[in-house]
Computed example of a mutant assay.
Amino acid sequence: MKRNINRNIKGNKYKNLINQLSESAVTFSFVTREDIGISDNSIRIIERLTDYLVNSYPTNAWLTNEVIDSPIIGHIYFYKLNSETKNILLEVSNSLFEWGDDAISDLPEDIAFYDKEEKPLLYVNGHENYAVIEALSLKDYLKIVLL
């Protein structure tokens, strides 16, 4: 089941969403963009997550965006999602759409969560104010929709 989210999820609802996602997701990713710049806060977050890094590479395309007709300007980072990394995500943000334009929100862009088969469960385009949830079951879908 797929559902678009066009309203920001904030505060306790954001915390509940991250906690629910951590039940099914095993990894998460976000992007930094050289053309926008990387905030000091984003650099600190990346440093805090270093021990949990699974993969990282330069790119111009990710789940919610593609930069065409340009040299590679983005970098995507994939991390293990566990209790430590979940707590970092809860600490550094209080809103789903804060994971948007790094120059505006002071966080990396476009957080996404993946299951053990690397299928996306939720992906965000923060500066466009939308997210997509791909629930595994009706139960998961209803839990998220009823936030």
Rank of each mutant, 00 (worst) to 15 (best):
L107A: 06
N41V: 10
L81Q: 00
Q20S: 15
S24A: 02
E134R: 13
Q20P: 13
A25D: 02
D40A: 14
R7D: 14
D35E: 13
E84C: 11
E66L: 09
I46T: 04
L142P: 01
R3K: 11
K2C: 09
I9Q: 02
V26G: 04
E34I: 14
L96H: 00
N60H: 06
E34H: 10
E47W: 02
P120D: 07
K116Y: 12
N41G: 08
A61H: 10
N82M: 03
N87T: 10
R3Q: 12
I45W: 04
E134A: 13
L147V: 04
R33E: 13
D69G: 15
I5S: 02
L81Y: 00
S29A: 10
Y77V: 06
K13Q: 10
V92I: 11
I18S: 01
Q20K: 14
A25M: 01
L146W: 07
L136E: 15
E134Q: 15
Y141R: 05
I111K: 03
D115K: 06
A61V: 10
T50D: 15
R3T: 13
I111A: 03
D106H: 07
K116W: 10
L136N: 15
Q20L: 15
T50W: 10
D101T: 11
R33Y: 04
S83V: 14
T59F: 00
S70I: 06
R44C: 14
N55W: 09
V132K: 02
A131H: 03
L17H: 04
S83W: 08
K119Y: 10
K10S: 09
T85R: 10
G74A: 09
N19R: 15
W62Y: 11
L89G: 03
Y130F: 10
E98F: 07
D110Q: 01
T59H: 01
N125T: 08
F28G: 01
L17Y: 07
V92H: 03
A112S: 06
G37P: 01
E66Q: 14
N55F: 05
E118F: 14
I46M: 05
L81H: 00
P71F: 01
S70L: 08
F30E: 00
H75I: 02
G100P: 00
D110C: 02
I18L: 07
S24D: 04
V26C: 08
L90H: 03
E66M: 11
A135H: 07
Y14S: 00
I88Y: 08
Y57H: 10
L107N: 00
N4R: 13
A25V: 07
I18M: 12
S70N: 13
H127D: 07
E117P: 05
T85A: 09
S39Q: 11
T59N: 02
D40M: 14
Y141C: 01
E84L: 13
T59M: 04
I9M: 01
P58T: 01
E109M: 04
E66H: 13
S105Q: 13
S56Q: 07
N19P: 07
L122I: 04
V145P: 06
D140K: 15
S95T: 09
Y52V: 10
L147D: 06
G37Y: 03
K119C: 15
A131P: 06
D51P: 07
S70W: 01
N8L: 03
D101L: 07
L49K: 07
S137T: 12
L142G: 09
K116C: 15
L17Q: 03
Q20V: 14
I144E: 03
Y114Q: 04
N129Q: 05
L81D: 08
I43N: 13
G74F: 03
F113S: 00
G74C: 05
E47A: 11
A135M: 05
E34L: 12
F113Q: 01
